[in-house]
Amino acid sequence: MNRDATVRSDVVSSHSVAGAPCWVSLTARDQGAAEDFYRAVLGWRFRTTALMDRFRIAYADGVPVAGVAAVASTWQMAVAWTPYFAVDNADEAVARGQERGGTTAVGPIGFSPGRAALLADRDGAVFGIWEGQLVAGWETWRRAAPAFLRLHTRNAFDAAMFYGEVLEWATSRPGCCEVHYDGDEVVLRSEGDVVARIHSGAVEAAPDPTIRPHWQVHFSVADVDACMRAALDHGGTVRDGASATEAVLRDPDGAQFTVTSKPQR
């Protein structure tokens, strides 16, 4: 059995991990440029998929870890990294979001392995939901993909209430995500691991999109300095405040993400 077949045998449904982050996807303008950049910075390999045109799956050590879709211009969407959360029922999750003041940008749309929708919370931070078969086994993806996610928002506790109700965090259902408080942050844990943090302080109407409410994807890497050098060599930028353990990078299209060597506990 080849490596990819091993990964496929570990595939599970969103129903078993509902509420937890299960995927991240980049909306880009130029597919080739995006692949060149992330191949150099994160060491990813890319493969085509039958899911849709202009969509590729990124692999790290043979494990599918992220999607890249060159649809920013066609669909008039922002160039950005977006996290997706597993749900039992996409229609019900969308309805819960709308009832609580969120908005729906796209979907739910049916794909061969499931259904997806793109939403925004009450403060405008964009996130996705996914119902159905996961691209990779959830444990496999979580170990190979993002270290964690961080929501920069106006009020962490208000945001935690919104997401908790929409994604059914901290409920009585088996395996649901646990919510804890750590100073001024809300911490989301799944099976004991930190998978997301919610941080107060974003400004809703700020002209700089990095200050407005948004989800930030943090990728775990072995060498932050090497990632920074590769990003600069391939047309990206490094935000001020970078260190040997963590740096915020932008790809040539402007999509922002973090590389970190800090494990989350």
Rank of each mutant, 00 (worst) to 15 (best):
M1A: 14
G201P: 03
A60C: 09
A116Q: 15
L149K: 01
A230N: 10
E185R: 15
T49K: 10
L26Y: 02
A105H: 10
A95L: 09
S200C: 03
L119F: 00
S25H: 04
A244D: 04
W81C: 14
L167N: 02
T140H: 08
A72D: 03
H152I: 01
E178C: 02
P263D: 09
D182L: 04
V65T: 10
F46T: 14
V194C: 02
S261L: 01
I198K: 05
T103K: 14
A70C: 13
A72G: 13
A117W: 00
G183I: 04
H218V: 02
R197T: 15
V87T: 11
D251W: 07
G102Q: 05
T171A: 08
A78H: 12
S200E: 00
E131M: 05
P174Y: 01
V94I: 12
D251S: 10
A40E: 00
W141F: 06
R143V: 06
T153R: 06
Q76I: 02
L249A: 03
G235N: 06
R150I: 01
S261H: 03
A247C: 04
I211R: 15
V194I: 15
A105I: 10
P207R: 15
A156T: 06
Q31R: 07
V195R: 01
A66E: 08
T140P: 01
R45V: 14
D91L: 05
R47Q: 11
G236V: 09
A40R: 04
A20F: 07
S172C: 08
V221T: 12
D193P: 02
T48L: 00
G192F: 03
G62D: 07
E168T: 06
W169I: 14
Y163F: 15
T210Q: 13
F157G: 02
A80G: 05
V187H: 09
S9F: 02
T104L: 12
D61V: 12
A156H: 08
M161D: 10
H152N: 15
R54N: 00
V135Y: 08
G254L: 01
A231P: 14
A231M: 07
